[in-house]
Design a binder for these strands. Sequence first.
DNA 1: AACACAAGTAGGCGATGCCTACATTCGTGT
DNA 2: ACACGAATGTAGGCATCGCCTACTTGTGTT
Lengths: 202, 202
Amino acid sequence: MNPMSEQTEQRRYHHGDLRAALLEAAEHSLRSHGPAQLSLRDLAREVGVSHGAPRRHFPERQDLLDALAENGYVRLGERIRRAVTSGDPDFAARVQRATSAFAHFAMENRALLELMNAAKHRPEGTGVPRSAEVAFEPLVDLLREGQERRLLRVGSIEEIGIILYATINGLATLVNNGLIDAERLEELIEIAVDQFLRGTAP
Amino acid sequence: MNPMSEQTEQRRYHHGDLRAALLEAAEHSLRSHGPAQLSLRDLAREVGVSHGAPRRHFPERQDLLDALAENGYVRLGERIRRAVTSGDPDFAARVQRATSAFAHFAMENRALLELMNAAKHRPEGTGVPRSAEVAFEPLVDLLREGQERRLLRVGSIEEIGIILYATINGLATLVNNGLIDAERLEELIEIAVDQFLRGTAP
DNA sequence: AACACAAGTAGGCGATGCCTACATTCGTGT
DNA sequence: ACACGAATGTAGGCATCGCCTACTTGTGTT
């Protein structure tokens, strides 16, 4: 009866923080239906706003996807940073923890990871590529430290970093695509990192 | 004036081999615009057939994508097989050639590779997953041979194969996403395989 | 209080995938 | 040879989507 009672939420003309609400709804949709099914009009309905409203915050659909990806990299970076800086300070153990953190993130955010990987070939130094770079900084620093302490062979840190990243991300992708059971990822990562350290030992 | 002269091609009611024509047009479209832009109606126009016709051969859009992916795995498998069985019979050299063949295929068929990787979580033992398995058989066999000849540590052949595959495919994906220059792929693969062999040595 | 601007609404456009009903051709069995 | 069923192609409809424009409502600043 009360014209403004709609599940405790009042329908004001202005939403208040539509951008955040859209991102939240998008993440939820992402978890249940994947990136391809994500529709702006759908999100607008979900949030209870007209189909044109999201345009004010995300002029193009891809802009929303980019925002999600960037957000994802921030969270991933945080987890990697924590993994590197806490716990057993042994070098190999820290590499294992960092990659394992990546693996867990990948499993808990499968569709998001796909988005993060696809947010590509944009002008460098801005947006998603930049946030991805930041996210992996702790891991790169860790590898650099390994080199300085003569635990890794000297050589282009960028090259071995890329290779390690490609391996971990590749394994996560295989899980995402159903070619590996999720339960096996942790074990495979452990083996892969072990091989990596062995292969890059001086 | 002649009702049936349309660029040497006659417009017959039945196309003859529409399925193949669609796949060819799809591959062409894939090369220039990526998987997301691929439209059934577009292909139909290109081939000169009504928009509903493709449905007879590919009831759903995904079915066409699956066919492309499967076709891709067949061609990739052929290249891997050739790489393994020809040239310098040295074990490491054969592994390098096989992975390098993969890398070249990935660069020459970027959008297709994306499709191949995305053709996922389908009922096992049929279609795309099966053709992928077949494509990599020569490489798996090669690794098994390496184990028998004590060039690789013993252990689950499936595990180390998956890890090698994840690494190579991961690197190819990074190139596809523009995070690595294409010219560097060959070199990175070489380093990665070298590390792999070192890391899996007995 | 006035006003410029941000944020949301409403409707339209072209395109897509999938659907159904119908038309044409092919191939096979008698 | 031919009739008929199956395969293949056509035509049009439907809901949805992304993007666009014109208009409305609220906000915050001066």
